[in-house]
Design a protein around this nucleic acid. Structure first.
Lengths: 156, 156
DNA sequence: TTAAAAATCACCCTAAAGTATGAGCCATAA
DNA sequence: TTATGGCTCATACTTTAGGGTGATTTTTAA
């Protein structure tokens, strides 16, 4: 495995070695071919020039590290429409569980009578609750209470 | 200007030409230097090989476009929750500009009298508006109107 | 220019909301 | 055990909201 790793690691170097060896063989062959010619020397030199230029180009292309361009793309997530109750504010305002129930139904648009029916209590009970809610939220009307409660994330 | 443009356009080619010419001079000089030596031929050929390899590398680096790898990274961000008025719904429900004003102030928690004062009209006018709003939204109470209007993105 | 829609206002009446006060019941914490 | 706070309910009263009807003026669109 270590030998394999060695080959992988030095792949380029080994390849270069092999190519070089092949070139040397080619050169020797060329030397023999053109030894008789008049222009043998010039042709031989030219051949070397061409081949090694090619080798240089090939090497450069192989060895250069590609440039990396980082493209950052912004993706907007869907607005998380999960309601997170602001329990701190709820505790700070001292709003009870029952009052929160009433507040939610109020915000849904129910009348005091409808809330009373839904919670199986009397209208007067709901009125008492609403009065206390208004006091705690420091508002005068149910519409204001809804607005403030929503703003404080006490209700969705 | 056209001559200048020519130089700029063929900068690489001209550079290559100059370098080649210099190399040829160098080669001629080397030829004279090593003509007397025993190993002159091998040294000469070696020099050519080294120089043209370098030339090839330089050429490749100059002429090839840089390799690029695009890395796309996705950035997830919260969508800014700016209110976008649902004009389609507004048109569908046939709610007028003035009615929308009243609806917004209503949702903010103002009483009819307060809305009237704010808009410099009489209480009766606001009552008329609210009545029409309720009809158009098909609701019975202002709290319901607020709930529906918010759900339909008619008000923030 | 003329009809339709929007905006304005008034009056009357009922329904609902909101205020004030008092009180009983129950669970829980001091 | 007692006190406290939460939940319940009641009565009486005031204020606000909402429905119905009709009318005038202004604006807009055909």
């Amino acid at each position: 495995m270590q030998i394999l790793n060695f080959f992988i690691r030095y792949k380029i170097v080994i390849l270069y070695g092999i190519v070089l060896a092949m070139l040397l063989f080619l050169l020797k062959w060329l030397e023999l071919q053109f030894i008789v010619s008049n222009y043998s020397f010039e042709i031989y030199a030219g051949s070397i020039a061409v081949m090694f230029t090619a080798l240089g180009i090939w090497l450069a292309l192989k060895l250069t590290k590609p440039k990396t361009i980082l493209i950052e793309r912004e993706i907007y997530t869907e607005r998380p429409n999960v309601f997170i109750l602001n329990e701190k504010e709820l505790a700070k305002l001292n709003i009870s569980k029952r009052e929160l129930d009433v507040l939610q139904l109020m915000a849904f648009g129910l009348s005091n009578q409808e809330i009373a029916s839904k919670l199986f209590v009397s209208l007067n009970t709901i009125k008492t609750h609403t009065t206390k809610i208004f006091e705690k939220l420091n508002v005068k009307r149910r519409t204001q209470a809804i607005e403030v409660a929503k703003r404080l994330s006490i209700i969705p």
